[in-house]
């Protein structure tokens, strides 16, 4: 069942490279976002590596815990570990780097564990801002999950598969697929908590909500895991978006070449998506949580209609 995954040294190198990519790129892309936003606002902006500098200085600092509860310290560790695990389930090039699951539900649940840790951490401290932030995060999860589910249902019916490999490589071009892709992009945007949907953290309003009591290394871990989660969602969307290319590039000469070409296509799509999302983010202001919930419900209804369309074979 490990299929065509390279074993031994080649497999290990592949995993190491993917891990390095997963860990290194998200902060860089965040730095890129900051520069892009600055450019849109006629500012110079911070250096590209600024987010890296921020993270490393956070990692050097200790943390104050306002409670003796173990969960306070454990939550950011769980968040980061699951975000990284989720990202390793995605294909880089033709295949994902690890073999213990390519299942899309394992991926989704792993990603949602970042939210779960944040919610549990937020509800566990006696700070009203943290409580409100956790509450908002939960509202977004509650209304976002059905949208994600309906997208997956359409993809699964289309490709007869629930593996990350299957729903990227074996999609068939149908009108319903073209209709569901914008919803996939929408749900990736919502779950990534870009403005106007940064409602749970809401830095300027409720002081980063669930993270308000966090500082130093623990805050760094949370920030890092949020970036990796965002990366994983966008990478998933990009991997699905380039679905016609897998077969095409897979047949190119040696395996390494086809892998690299596919990877390049994924990265370009990812970069474009990130740029687009940043532009949308920079030209918006945060919504109220109820507005976001209402929009999610509308999109969900649209998704159900597309699901019905899929059932008719379109």
């Amino acid at each position: 069942m490990s299929g065509a995954v390279p074993q031994g040294v080649a497999g290990f190198v592949r995993l190491a490279l993917s891990l390095a990519f997963i860990l290194a790129v998200p902060p860089l892309m965040d730095g890129y976002s900051r520069r892009l936003k600055a450019a849109m606002q006629y500012r110079v902006g911070p250096p590209l590596l600024q987010t890296w500098y921020d993270l490393t200085s956070l990692f050097r600092m200790g943390s104050n815990a306002p409670t003796k509860a173990l969960s306070f310290t454990l939550a950011p560790c769980v968040a980061l570990a699951s975000a990284v695990l989720a990202a390793t389930l995605l294909p880089y090039g033709q295949l994902p780097p690890i073999t213990f699951s390519w299942d899309v539900f394992v991926l989704i649940y792993c990603l949602s564990m970042v939210s779960v840790s944040m919610i549990l951490a937020g509800f566990s401290v006696r700070n009203p801002y943290a409580n409100i932030g956790a509450n908002r995060e939960m509202m977004l999860v509650l209304t976002g999950e059905p949208v994600l589910g309906v997208v997956l249902a359409v993809l699964a019916l289309n490709s007869s598969s629930l593996s990350t490999l299957g729903i990227t490589h074996y999609l068939r071009l149908r009108p319903s697929l073209l209709l569901i892709l914008p919803i996939l992009l929408y749900v990736a945007y919502v779950e990534s908590a870009f403005i106007p949907l940064d409602i749970a953290e809401a830095e300027t309003e409720i002081l980063e909500g669930p993270l308000v009591e966090y500082g130093g290394v623990l805050l760094g871990l949370f920030k890092y895991s949020l970036m990796i989660k965002r990366f994983a969602l966008l990478w998933l969307a990009s991997s699905v978006l380039i679905f016609p290319l897998y077969g095409l590039l897979g047949s190119v000469g040696p395996a390494l070449a086809s892998d690299l070409l596919t990877f390049a296509a994924q990265f370009l799509t990812y970069f474009t998506l990130h740029t687009l999302y940043t532009v949308v983010e920079a030209s918006n202001a945060r919504w109220k949580v109820r507005d976001a919930m209402k929009l999610n419900v509308k999109v969900f209804v649209a998704g159900i209609l597309i699901l019905i369309l899929t059932a008719t074979g379109w």
């Binding site: 943390s63 950011p76 769980v78 570990a81 699951s82 990284v84 006696r126 700070n127 009591e213 290394v217």
Partner: peptide, 27 residues
């Protein structure tokens, strides 16, 4: 994999987390 990741991170940060003398910030 998950528990190794979590425990590894936890052991890494554990010694650097100390109880805040003032507790949670309550505005």
């Amino acid at each position: 994999a998950l528990s190794l990741g979590v425990l590894g991170l936890y052991w890494g940060v554990r010694s650097r987390v100390r109880a805040s003398p003032s507790g949670a910030w309550l505005c």
